[in-house]
Design a protein around this nucleic acid. Sequence first.
RNA 1: GGAGGGGUGCCCGAGUGGUUAAAGGGGACGGGCUGUAAACCCGUUGGCUAUGCCUACGUUGGUUCGAAUCCAACCUCCUCCA
Length: 427
Amino acid sequence: MTTYRSDFIRIVAERGFLHQCTDLETLDALASKSSITAYIGFDCTAPSLHAGSLVSIMLLRWLQKTGHRPIVLMGGGTTKVGDPSGKDETRKLLGDDGIAANMAGIKDVFKPFLDFGNGPTDALMADNADWLDGLQYIPFLRDYGRHFSINRMLGFDSVKLRLDREQPLTFLEFNYMILQAYDFLELARRYDCVLQMGGSDQWGNIVGGVELARRLDGRALYGLTTPLLETASGAKMGKTAAGAVWLNKDMLSPYGYWQYWRNAEDADVGGFLRLFTDLPVDEIARLEALKGEECNEAKKILANEATKLCHGETVVEEVAASAASVFENGGVGVIEAGGESDGAGLPVIDVARRDLENGIPAFELLTRAGLAASNSEARRLIKGGGGRLNGVVIGNELQSVSIADMGSKGLIKLSAGKKRHAVVRAI
RNA sequence: GGAGGGGUGCCCGAGUGGUUAAAGGGGACGGGCUGUAAACCCGUUGGCUAUGCCUACGUUGGUUCGAAUCCAACCUCCUCCA
């Protein structure tokens, strides 16, 4: 195995972040003798980032921990264009307001992972709208557009995928890669940023920036990509039935976040521990070796550590206690204590006391609790034997749920399957 | 600009006037087996005030007792020609 001179590259390699690099040796040498600045771009297409972006975020974290300066680039400008990479259809175009709102949510995501400030290795946040918005079409085309070959761009996966699927690719989106290349150049000029990182689907775009800088400024920049993560059985990282695994607690509660990691497949545990926690690699090797049922211990540690990074240490304890209560004792978790769970426990649904006094059909309550997307789905769920009321299978979807079903704490536990639960409370 | 071929449910993909809420596969969800795992087996997979009703096969109109299926216009993708 290759030995690396810089802490950054060594750690990144041994923890599984490394997929491709434009010039690993030189970059390693550079990072070993000086502090470098590197960036990753994030588009503002949603109000939060999800677990799919976590590899990138952790990569910036390690960059900072090994003495370098991370730049988080908000795609305030590029989001207006829309990255065709990995999308088989045109994104809905967002307006300025939507982008600004999304950006605010995304900025929050980074706070627990990176230290921001003005020190030499403090993280920096930039917004490419600052330079992209002011570009003038003809001058830009003449100065930069002439360095891009359509012939090559057509070969890029992001373009090819769209064409192969017979989906439209607008000229607007086609320009995305040029703008991203320009971003890199701009960051190199402004902040002496020498490295752009990103998911493997960004390779083409990153290389575009490296080449642009070489042609225009005669400057060597570097690109590094992370593997595109899939779970061991091939599912896309960061997606579940309930939707994306958001990093923002308004979008996904810490409880739900913890559950995502707790439910990792056996085969993924080691890799996830390396990528998504700060645990030392030899400790991970030990956890990874656990076989059979013992693997669950490793998964709990994974869930605890990952949740700690994202939502903080204090919440983790409550979440873990909740999970133990729900899954090991058939309880309802921290909410039982009577307080607000603040996302550390099962979702709580408030239902008007009057409604409960009259009785609510079981299927309707499941829908209200968010355990089914529609009343029809709730009915099917119950017919299939997947609906539970206080742990008991609901036999008939019309069964009425009322005050009488509340336990001693005045709560009703509803379940869809063995893992999805919610607590109903009367107000 | 011309000629031809396409657009079907979350995705892929059958279906060319009624028996089609639409074959098959994937995915997802539920059940079984387990370890809150994987694999495997079974079931479900448009909505609703639900033994019925409503909405759906690119869009909008039309023909017909009846249309995803026929016609027209439009949108859009592909291939070839200029």
